[in-house]
Simulated assay, not measured.
Amino acid sequence: MAGRDTGELKTAGRPRDPEADEAILRAALELFAERGVDGTSIEQIAKRAGVARLTVYRRWSSKEELLVQAIVYGRNAPDLTDEEYDTLPYPEVFARMVGTMTDAIADRRLAPLLAQLIGSTFSHPELFDAFWRASGSKRREGGIRLVRRAIREGMLPPDADPEVIVEIIVGALFYRMLVPPRHDDVLEYVGRVLRQVGFREIPTP
Rank of each mutant, 00 (worst) to 15 (best):
A2M: 10
A2N: 13
D5H: 03
G7Y: 06
G7I: 05
G7T: 12
E8Q: 12
E8M: 14
L9A: 08
L9W: 06
T11A: 12
G13Q: 04
P15E: 07
P15A: 10
P15V: 03
D17C: 12
A23C: 04
A23Y: 01
A27F: 00
A28N: 02
R35S: 15
G36C: 07
D38M: 07
E43F: 10
G50M: 08
V51G: 05
T55N: 10
T55G: 06
Y57K: 11
R58C: 02
R59C: 01
R59T: 02
R59P: 03
E65H: 12
L67A: 08
L67Q: 02
V68Q: 03
V68D: 03
R75L: 15
N76F: 05
P78Y: 02
D79V: 11
T81E: 09
D82E: 15
E83D: 15
Y85K: 05
D86M: 09
T87V: 13
L88W: 10
Y90K: 07
P91D: 05
M97A: 09
V98G: 01
V98Q: 05
V98A: 13
G99I: 04
T100M: 13
L110D: 06
L110T: 10
P112Y: 04
G119I: 08
G119Y: 09
S120E: 12
F122K: 14
S123N: 14
H124F: 03
P125Q: 06
E126G: 10
D129E: 13
D129R: 15
F131R: 06
W132H: 10
G136I: 04
S137Y: 07
K138M: 02
K138T: 10
K138V: 11
E141M: 13
E141R: 14
E141A: 14
R145L: 02
R145T: 13
L146V: 03
A150P: 01
A150I: 08
I151M: 10
M155S: 04
L156V: 09
P158V: 10
P158E: 14
D161K: 09
D161R: 07
D161M: 02
P162M: 07
P162A: 08
E163I: 07
E163F: 01
E163W: 01
V164F: 12
V164E: 15
E167L: 11
I168T: 13
V170F: 06
G171R: 08
A172T: 05
Y175W: 11
Y175A: 11
M177G: 06
V179Q: 14
H183D: 15
D184V: 09
D185L: 08
E188H: 11
Y189S: 06
L194H: 02
R195Y: 01
R195I: 00
Q196F: 09
V197S: 05
V197P: 00
G198E: 07
T204L: 13
